[in-house]
Design a binder for these strands. Structure first.
Length: 574
DNA sequence: ACCTTAGTTGGGGCC
DNA sequence: AGGCCCCAACTAAGG
């Protein structure tokens, strides 16, 4: 049967590794490559819109070279499709599977009702997310390792599908009018109500062509690709220290499978290469991790109703939120990052960590959902699953639990940029400060500020919070939120651990309270049965003649000990 | 059931 | 300057 196909582009803005597009061209006499623009949806800012329009123009150019065209239609899918099915005599609709919450099911039903056959193909992720979830009893793995072991049982990801060529389009006609450009052309920023004067430097032009060029430019950097370890790349680098392929992966201008197998080829024939999670393959698995989490966890981009998310009473502070967003916090490292984000649409992963921690659990105690919205607007690579997943992570709401590891807005940048070149680039107002004060200009004596031509409080803001005090306070609030999550844990949450004299209560029967459990000394009578740590625990307990308790199960691995008051319910057992 | 281990990517003080 | 130790003390997964 010869079909009249619509291929619906959403992500996957490419001709390579696009199985749904290939399916549309198979047994097809008429093909309409379609993109539906819904200018009212989403929070994309001007830079992100420019990237998308670049990508659409590139796609149209590539299709045109094969005698086809891209049809850009404005509206919402539920309204657009019935009209197009009718006008174009459509018998088949193909599109790429999208794991984000969407109205794909509604569109599919609508197509069935119009007698249109629907074909969906997985090509935005390395693995079929549904299959990974099914393998794990429908639940998303909550650790990277967990995902890795699931994927190990599935084998390597599928190879990319062949790139669409003229041969695929043999006998497959795209009906174009002379009026195509006015009717179905790619609009301009102005036509979308965006202010074109708001765009920043065009560092990362959108589109498949730019994506493949960027990938190819990495080709002769075999050693760099094989040595790549994400935590060792620098957030303060003046030109990106990582690949900046993320915007292209987000829109699907670059196929993740193409990238994966391209890397695999680079790795082949090398003596050794870095490994997940820090390697480049590892980065793609992180992407997979958050895609799986986003698909398997309800309300993934919200706190309320999200079962893995710590429930926190975040502050509502519009002034602080605005200062953070506008790069006016008074912390040059934070403000420089937010400036780079606003102007260029991309910042290093660790820079995201620094500003995300600062906004949430570190300093401002503002909900990660607010940060998520700002990133969604300003990042070229803002990807629903990755954005929400990383905000959950950095705010200490899920996945990451060592909340006492707080990024210092002063010290963190210094590690890789002692002189503050990064700050000088993005905050020129501070460029003449001596290195000694560039991260903390408010500490500079008046004469130094005058010398630098920048008075703190006049030309650059005073810090909006005092990091030392704010982070300490927030650490306590985080701890409180954690204990609320586990109300059954009888260890004395919220109290300051300290040595206490329990001598009057002691008998031979020393009780060790470890975590939430009560263990009698008699259980440990044979020293050989004890682990090294338990023995140590016992020794200290006897040596100090006291009841020994710990508030955590993790103490042993670090070799430190905490003695805490006995919870009231155990006191009589003393 | 119980325990151990590990967790992509910290900070600060000390030597 | 750079390495080492300590800080503080949670969760998930696996044995």
């Amino acid at each position: 049967m010869q079909h009249s196909s619509i291929h619906w582009f959403r992500k996957g803005l490419r001709l390579h590794d696009n199985p749904a597009l290939l399916a549309a061209a198979t047994d097809c006499h008429r093909l309409h490559p379609l993109f539906i623009l819904d200018p009212s949806s989403g929070r994309a800012g001007t830079n992100a819109w420019r990237f998308l329009l670049d990508a659409l123009r590139d796609l149209d150019r590539s299709l045109r070279e094969m005698g086809s065209r891209l049809f850009v239609v404005q509206g919402c899918p539920e309204e657009v499709f019935p009209r197009l099915f009718h006008a174009w005599g459509t018998t088949r609709l193909t599109f790429e599977v999208d794991t984000e919450p969407s109205r794909d099911a509604t569109v599919a039903e609508l197509a069935e009702r119009h007698g249109v056959k629907v074909i969906r193909e997985v090509s935005h992720t390395l693995y079929d997310t549904e299959r990974v979830l099914a393998l794990n009893n429908g639940k998303a793995p909550l650790t990277y390792k967990g995902l890795q072991s699931l994927l190990a049982s599935l084998g390597p990801p599928e190879k990319p599908a062949p790139t669409l060529t003229l041969e695929h389009l043999q006998g497959c006609h795209t009906p174009c009018q002379v009026s195509h450009d006015t009717e179905y052309g790619v609009p301009t920023l102005e036509e979308l109500g965006q202010d074109p004067t708001e765009v920043g430097p065009h560092l990362y032009p959108g589109g498949e062509t730019a994506a493949l060029a960027r990938l190819n430019s990495l080709m002769d950097r075999t050693a760099w690709l094989c040595d790549f370890k994400k935590p060792e790349t620098e957030p303060t680098s003046l030109s990106p220290s990582t690949t900046v392929l993320s915007p292209y992966l987000k829109f699907g201008c670059l196929s993740v499978r193409t990238f994966w197998w391209w890397l695999d080829e680079v790795y082949q024939g090398q003596r050794e290469h870095s490994q997940p999670p820090v390697s480049l393959h590892g980065q793609l698995l992180w992407r997979e991790f958050f895609y799986t989490a986003g698909a398997g966890i309800p309300n993934f981009d919200r706190m309320v109703g999200n079962p893995v998310c710590l429930q926190v009473n975040w502050d509502n502070n519009p002034q602080h939120l605005r200062a953070w967003r506008e790069g006016q916090t008074g912390y040059p490292f934070i403000d420089a990052i937010m400036t780079q984000l606003r102007t260029e649409g991309w910042i290093h992963h660790l820079a995201r960590h620094a500003v995300a921690c600062f906004l949430t659990r570190g300093d401002l105690w503002i909900s990660w959902e607010e940060g998520l919205k700002v990133f969604e607007e300003l990042l070229l690579d803002a990807d629903w699953s990755l954005n929400a997943g990383n905000w959950l992570w950095l705010s200490g709401s899920a996945f990451f639990h060592r909340y006492f590891h707080i990024y210092s807005p002063v010290a963190f940048g210094k590690k890789t940029d002692r002189d503050g070149a990064y700050i000088r680039k993005y905050l020129p107002v501070l460029k003449d400060f001596p290195a000694k004060y560039i991260y903390e200009p408010w500490k500079a004596p008046r004469a130094v500020q005058e010398q630098a031509g920048c008075l703190v409080g006049t030309h650059y803001p005073q810090p909006i919070v005092e990091h030392g005090a704010a982070s300490k306070r927030n650490l306590g609030r985080m701890k409180a939120a954690q204990s609320k999550r586990h109300p059954t844990n009888p260890s004395p949450q919220g109290t300051t651990p300290h040595w206490i004299d329990l001598h009057p209560y002691l008998s031979d029967n020393i009780i060790i309270i470890k975590g939430s459990r009560v263990i009698k000394k008699s259980q440990f009578d044979s020293p050989h049965a004890l682990t090294h740590q338990q023995q140590h625990h016992m020794e200290v307990s006897q040596q100090h003649n006291c009841v020994l308790g710990t508030v955590s199960l993790g103490w042993s691995s670090q070799g430190s000990l905490l003695l805490t008051p006995l919870p009231a319910e155990y006191e009589e057992m003393g």
